[in-house]
Every structure is written in C-alpha cells, then in structure tokens.
Design a protein around this nucleic acid. Structure first.
Lengths: 118, 118
DNA sequence: ACAATTGTTCAATAACTTTTGAACTAAGGA
DNA sequence: TCCTTAGTTCAAAAGTTATTGAACAATTGT
C-alpha cells in the first residue's frame, strides 16, 4: 500500500503556493516543521478540523508534493518533503515556515493541550 | 486619486501565498521583478489575459500587499512591494521570484513580441 | 468639444474549493 | 471472531474565485 506522490520535478510552483495559501494547511506544515524527525499521523491534526476535512487537506499537501505520506499499518505517517522542495525551489519552504512560525493568525495544533508546567 | 493598499503589518502570509498561487499573477510578479525600477502600466500585461481580467488580477495583487499601484493620469503604475514583503516575510519574495524565473510552465509576458535580432 | 486611450465596475456565469455526514475499508487487539 | 482505531471515499451543499462582455469614468491629445 503506497499512496501516489509527484516526483520532485513534477512539483509545480503555483500549485505549491496555492496549497500553502490556506490557513489550515499552513498550520499543518508549521506543525510538521516544528516536529521534524518525529513521524506524525493524521489524528495529530484534529484540532484543525474534522477527520474528513483533514483527510482532504492532507491529500492536497501530498498531491502538491509538500508532504510525504507513508502507510504503516492503520496509520499514515506524514513528513515534509524538505529536500525535494529545497532542490526545486531553494529557500522557499524555509522562508514560508519562518513566516508561519511568527503568524499569530494561524490556527494552532495542540491548542487544546493542558498546560502542565508551574 | 489613490487606491487602497494594506499597510505592511496588514499583509497576511496565507493571503500572499494564495494570491501568488495563480499562474497569471505569478507571471505578472515575475515580469515586474525582471523590470524592477521601470514603472509598468496595466497594458503591459495584456498578453496574459483580457483587460477586465487583468484589472481583477492586479487588484488581487494590490489588495494582498504584493504590489503598489500609483495612479498617474490615465495610467496606473505598478511596482512590487519588495521592501514591505521582505520586512514582513524575509526571503519569501526572492525565493518565489527565483523559482518563477525558472518555471517554463508560466505564461510569458511579451510572448507576442517580434524577434528582432539576427 | 470630440475622440482616443486607460483602465474600472457591474452582473452573470462558469469553474473550482472547502466542508459536511454517512458509509466504508483495513489493520490490530481482546 | 468481534470490536476498536485510523483513515478514506462519496455525494451533496456551501462558498469562493476566475472569466466574460457591456457600460462607464477620467485623462489626454487634436
């Protein structure tokens, strides 16, 4: 079971920009960047919308070549395609993430988490 | 006669990305970048669409804070808001332009020009 | 004053995108 | 085997964006 992904050279600039130009998807990408290395499954993102809706947004990100989705058992592990995006559009992803990190208007993943520290 | 523009801090990241995520508008931005310094009026872009349609796309770019439109007589002079965009989202515009320059799929301004050189 | 040039606005339409709920599949555990 | 967990698919509804043509406005040149 493997899902279809564009090859690096099939990744289209206007498409990547359009896909990143949605607050929900930008929030997903920001969170993925903040947890780089840790493979995340879809339910991490339930703060951002319904299961169905996330399935839709995560498919858009995958189809645009922004993320890679690996099927592992009943989970999908989602990662940023940093290397491919950097090869194709140098500096773009980094500047988008840096700007997204500073954006208070974006919805937050983990907004419903309990603050545990004193 | 001055047209409404967002202030630098009103420029929104998802909105800028969404507005740049359209081939026509990306082609406009690429052309503006290639003619930096030279003020361009709307009719420069007629290769990319009808007058009405360009009016629409140029308004989107202005409203998102990507371009500045100055009214001079019967013309509108359009420039990139490089400084504001760079202050707000460092490196973003440059990486988008660099990627757009290399994108053969984008429509070209001046595609209908006659090749004059030997 | 008249005509030409530049570009806008409006309303209609066409084409997409996002969101939803109900029904579904596939793997894993009891 | 049955139940749960994780996520998809489908069709409908809602919302948004892009494109068009006809009519308009403002400036400039004659």
């Amino acid at each position: 079971m493997t899902l279809p992904h564009p090859t690096a050279d099939q990744i289209s600039l206007p498409n990547v920009l359009a896909v990143l130009g949605d607050p929900t998807r930008l929030a997903i990408v920001r969170y993925l960047a903040s947890k780089e290395g840790v493979p995340l499954n879809c339910s991490q993102f339930l703060d951002l919308g319904s299961k169905t809706n996330l399935s839709y947004h995560l498919a858009k990100l995958r189809e645009a070549g922004v993320t890679r989705t690996e099927v592992v058992g009943t989970s999908r592990l989602i990662t940023l395609r940093r290397d491919d995006l950097n090869a194709r559009f140098p500096g773009l992803l980094d500047s988008v993430i840096a700007a997204a990190v500073d954006d208070p208007a974006l919805p937050a993943v983990g907004a419903s988490e309990i603050e545990v520290r004193a």
